[in-house]
Every structure is written in C-alpha cells, then in structure tokens.
C-alpha cells in the first residue's frame, strides 16, 4: 500500500508537472504550484470515489498457487473443482484429475462438461470406475434412460472389473427399460449373488431391484382406454390384478417378479399377513437363488419392522 501511494504520487507529479510546466516562470509566483495542487486534488478526489487501494491485485497464477498449497478438503466444492482444473492446466495428461473433475461436475449437474472430463480421462487411461461414472452421467443427461452410449461404457467397465456393482445394475436396467424383464432379472440376481455381503451396494441394489421388478406390469394404452371408459373402477382393477397374480403363483408358473408384485400389492393394501404368506411362498420357490433370497430377506426384515411399528 505504501508502494502504491508512492507510485500514485510520482505519477501525479510527473503528469501534472508536465502539463503546468509552461506556467513555471509566470507571475504571480503561486500560479504554477496552485495549478499543480489543483490538478492533484481533482485527480485524487476522482480517484477516491470508489477506489480500493487496500485490496491487492490477485493475478490468476497467484490465486492458483495459493489454492494448490491449501488443503483440498478445506476448500469448497467450487474451489476444489478449480483446483483440479489448475492441476490439469499444468498437466493435461493427469487421468486421475480428469476423472475427479468429472465426478465433481457430474455432482453439480453439469453433465456435458462431466462427460467431456471423463472421456479425456479415459483417453489417457482406461479405468472401470471412470467408465461406470461416464455411463451414469449419460443416464443423468438423458433423464434416466440407459442409452447405447451408456450401455457401451458399462459393458466395457464390467469386462474390466466384474466386481464393480454399478455396471451390472445399469446393464440390467437397460434390459428392463427395453422391456426384457426376464433378462433384467437374471442380470440383477446374478449381480446380487456375486456381491460381498459387506458391500453397502448390495442392500442398495437389492432395494432398487425390488422396486423395479415389483412395478405393476401395465400397458399404458390400455390404462388410458380403461380410464376413459365410464365404468372405470380402480379398486376393481387392483383386485383383478391381485387375483391374476394369486392364480399364477398357485399354478406355479409365476416368475420372481410376479412374486414380488404380489408381496408389494398386498403390503400396499395393508394386508401384512397376506404379504408374509406371499413372501414365504417366494422363499420356498426361490430357495436355491442366492440373489433372490437376499432380496426376500431384506423384504422380510422390512415387513417385520412395519408390523412392529404397527403395534
């Protein structure tokens, strides 16, 4: 700040002195000094409206160096992202930094940039984790649809690291979205069976799979047509559905998904005992499938807590 004051004073003196120099020898003697003072004070007053002499300049390099020296965890997300970008500006071939940046961008819903960052990372170094993140970003970008690009990424990720849970889940989701529910079921149950019991994803994925598989199978067109007709009774329709499911379970040609649907619909109707019965039926039927049993165990636990709360 002292340095700034000196610079400004010297500048003022040089410029004002240059301008008023022809008046130096003029009478009255005070003319030149007062012109000088006048100039300096007008310039000073103009300068000080809005000046911030105490604020140091912050060239970008300096700001980046300070960020680099700081503890990354102490920085906010925006600053962390900027720090990663700084690292990449210095070394464009840092695949890990690209992947981290991609993750942060994906988290802040800047998918296009995130995809770019993941792809940069993958061009430098193929990595199952990054491939999987790329696939998920594609899904987010496309409002939950598992596109072909996403599927390609997941397939590659799964090939590289079969232990990674997400690719399997989303590949199943892809089959599910394209209407091939049996294929989705197979992929998911395999995946759940494969996962280690301590893996937190195991429960997460099981829940998701239950939610998806137990969705009622409806034909949107038929529902609209039915809703438009006059004697439409939603309760009747649900009852019909339950009946159909029960019949199929009793006949033994119900799939795993049908069992889950029955459990879910009974649970929703408040028929907890019926739910437990259906659950038991499913356990008997799928005892040899490890993946199916994982889901059913979870359901059993959930239903019991529900019952516990109910009392």
């Amino acid at each position: 700040m002292i340095l700034l004051a000196i610079i400004l004073a010297v500048t003022a003196f040089v410029f004002a002195g240059f301008a008023v120099w022809p008046s130096a020898r003029l009478q009255p003697r005070w003319l030149a000094p007062s012109l000088l003072a006048g100039l300096a004070s007008v310039a000073g007053a103009t300068y000080f409206t809005g000046a911030q002499p105490q604020a140091p300049g912050v060239p970008y390099q300096q700001a980046a160096a300070e960020r680099m020296a700081a503890n990354p965890d102490a920085l906010g997300p925006a600053a962390q992202m900027e720090r990663l970008r700084d690292i990449l500006r210095a070394d464009e071939t840092d695949a890990v930094a690209w992947a981290q940046l991609g993750r942060m961008l994906a988290r802040s819903e800047r998918e296009l940039e995130a995809i770019n960052a993941f792809q940069r990372s993958l061009r430098l170094e193929l990595n199952a984790r990054t491939l999987s993140d790329l696939g998920q970003t594609f899904i987010n970008l496309n409002d939950g649809q598992v596109t072909d690009e996403a599927r390609a990424a997941f397939e590659e990720a799964q090939r590289m690291d079969p232990a990674l849970p997400e690719p399997g889940f989303f590949l199943g989701l892809q089959a599910f979205q394209s209407g091939d529910i049996d294929a989705a079921e197979t992929i998911w149950l395999d995946l759940i069976a494969r996962l280690d019991d301590r893996d937190p994803y195991k429960i997460l994925i099981s829940e998701q799979v239950f939610q998806l598989l137990s969705q009622p199978q409806v034909n949107a067109g038929a529902v609209e047509a039915a809703a438009a007709s006059e004697d439409f009774d939603p309760r009747q329709r649900i009852a019909d559905m339950v009946q159909r499911l029960e019949a199929r379970v009793a006949d033994g040609d119900a799939g795993f998904a049908d069992h889950l649907r029955l459990i879910r619909v009974r649970g929703m109707l408040g028929d907890n005992e019926g739910g437990m019965d259906a659950l038991q039926a499913a356990r008997d039927r799928f005892a040899e499938s490890e993946g199916a049993m994982t889901i059913l165990d979870l359901l059993a636990a959930a239903l019991q807590t529900d019952e516990g709360q109910g009392e």
């Binding site: 004002a16 008023v20 006048g38 100039l39 007008v42 310039a43 000046a51 911030q52």
Partner: peptide, 20 residues
C-alpha cells in the same frame, strides 16, 4: 496495484481535461 494505478490514471486524465 495495477488496477488502482489504472484507476488513478483515468482520474488524472479527467483532471488534465479540465485544465485543457
């Protein structure tokens, strides 16, 4: 510092214009 010097130079040009 550069910015503040720039600001001051604008002010100086203003003052010199009055003298002009």
């Amino acid at each position: 510092m550069i910015a503040e010097t720039g600001r001051f130079l604008v002010a100086l040009a203003f003052a010199l214009s009055i003298l002009q």
